[in-house]
Amino acid sequence: MKKIIIIAALFIVTLIGAYSLSEYIARQLYPQNTGARMQLGSPFNLTAHTGEAITEQAFQGTPSAVFFGFTHCPEVCPTTLNDLTNLRDEVTAGKKTFNIFFITVDPARDTVAALRDYIPYFGDGITGITGEEEAVYALARAWGIFWEKNNITESGYNIDHTATVFLLDDKGYFKGTIDYHESRDIALKKLERLTAIR
């Protein structure tokens, strides 16, 4: 009987040890993706619509809704920015809020000068992000964003692009998405959950 207890105890200790070791190794190998926490994108050095420098530190301290778009976008971009500010006003009624980030996929046309007037049109608490073309594209790639110029005419071009809104918690970890066709109720619930995380 005593033997069985010792064997069982050894077995449990070994299990705990193995689990701890694997967790330790995982954390060493993937420091950003421990447990259920996942970080999207990559570190960056770009410019906000205000002209100030901006880095991934902007996603720290307050939850974020991150959207990729461009100013010459006739529909999905203005719709998404309007929806997000309206939803935020509703969520903010409970005093907790989130920041909105609009990262351009059209750095050639979306200069700081172009974003400076465009972004505040949709309300406060929105930060436009642009910069050197390659640096902007590198960030979009790191987020797994698809974009492609189409309908190219003498009057310009359109860009097909990923229209998903990414939600990050106040530590910058990925918490979920909002799809373009998602109902307002579901989007509101997701944002309420996002802002409730502490």
Partner: peptide, 12 residues
């Protein structure tokens, strides 16, 4: 406009 795999595609 068609939403395809999260990508908004627009065509004339």
């Amino acid at each position: 406009m068609i939403l395809e795999a999260g990508v908004m595609k627009m065509s004339p």
